[in-house]
Amino acid sequence: MRIVSRWMLTLSLFLILKSTLVADELPAPTGDPAIIPAGAKLEELWKEGLFTEGVAAAPDGRIYFSDISAGDRPGRILRFDPSTKKTDVYCAGSGQSNGLMFDRNGNLIAACGANGGKIALCRIEEEGALKVLASKFDGKVFNSPNDLVIHPDGSIFFSDPRYVGTEPTELDHMSVFRFDPKTQKLTRVTTEITKPNGVILSPDGSTLYVAETNRGTTEVAKAKSSNSKSRMTLNAFRIKKDGTLGKRKILHDFGDQLGIDGMTVDTNGNIYAAVRSAERHGIIVFSPAGHVKAYIPTPDLPTNCCFGTGEGKQTLYLTVGKGLYRIKLKSTGYHPATS
């Protein structure tokens, strides 16, 4: 018994040491010194999740993020307090929330996915209950709302692909939608993206950036013919006066490498993209024109990122693998819904 205990203790210490070494051996962030300060280093804050996503900064400076389950539970939303460095459970049943963002009134809006989830655009109530804002398009249930961004006018753009989930699909397309909470109007804003993922806005609110993350497969049976080719791209769309989108402009093509999951922007319009490429995963910073300006390596595949608020406005928070991380930068984050 003592031998087994000693062996387990030795193994545990080895794993802890190995994990520390892996973190310490990460290549240093590189790129534009106006973005990456000297000595910038990624800091692990919490690593007890299953699959973290949708990091969002609250007006009071606390950081919220999703922990998506494998379908055995509805997922949850965690909350990290920068002042205490403690993380607690904010919502124990998030309906498989993925993308999160606070609106101008301080409401937490969530894109809730499939695989046992709510499959809807929802508002997370203070007591943890979910208020469905939209769940169907043309009378058909969404595929699996994935990510969202709230425009300064209050409207919500969100992506609706299907990556996981055993639920039957009803739509024959995977699209980007715009929901207006004031009028309750839901609009399909583009047909040019085969499988949309992360979405974010330019600081002036005139451009919507959309990540297309399509390996050439889909669970939406009727859409197979339009999704037969792998498409991994970062795209820009001009937002028209009626909220629909103009013709897409491809800013970056990842070729055969896995592309972008979630994104955020800084006040200069630079795009911070969580890139899941096996060869070079991490946060890649693109200019508004699509030029690479900086690179922040991560210890595992990243899913999303956002800047903090208040005193943390130059701190980038990242969901990576099973955890939450942060890094102090020189750039300042922009929050389209509240800035």
Rank of each mutant, 00 (worst) to 15 (best):
I3F: 15
K18C: 15
L26C: 02
A28V: 11
P37R: 11
A38V: 05
E43R: 09
E48A: 12
G49D: 13
L50I: 01
L50W: 02
A57Y: 12
I68F: 09
G71Q: 04
R76H: 03
I77L: 05
T87V: 14
V89L: 00
A92E: 15
G93Y: 11
S94L: 07
S97L: 11
M101E: 07
F102A: 06
E125S: 15
G128Q: 02
K131Y: 10
N143M: 08
S144D: 06
L148P: 01
H151E: 07
G154A: 10
D160S: 00
V176Y: 08
F177A: 05
P181R: 02
K185G: 01
T187R: 00
R188L: 08
V189G: 01
K195Y: 08
P196Y: 07
L201Y: 00
T207F: 15
L208G: 05
V220N: 06
S225H: 13
N227M: 14
T233P: 09
I239L: 02
D242S: 00
G243Q: 00
L245V: 01
L251C: 08
H252W: 10
V265D: 08
T267N: 04
N270Q: 07
V275I: 04
R276S: 12
I284Q: 06
I284T: 10
V285Q: 05
P299W: 05
F307P: 07
K313H: 03
Q314C: 10
T315P: 05
L324K: 10
R326A: 01
R326S: 14
R326C: 12
T332Y: 06
Y334I: 06
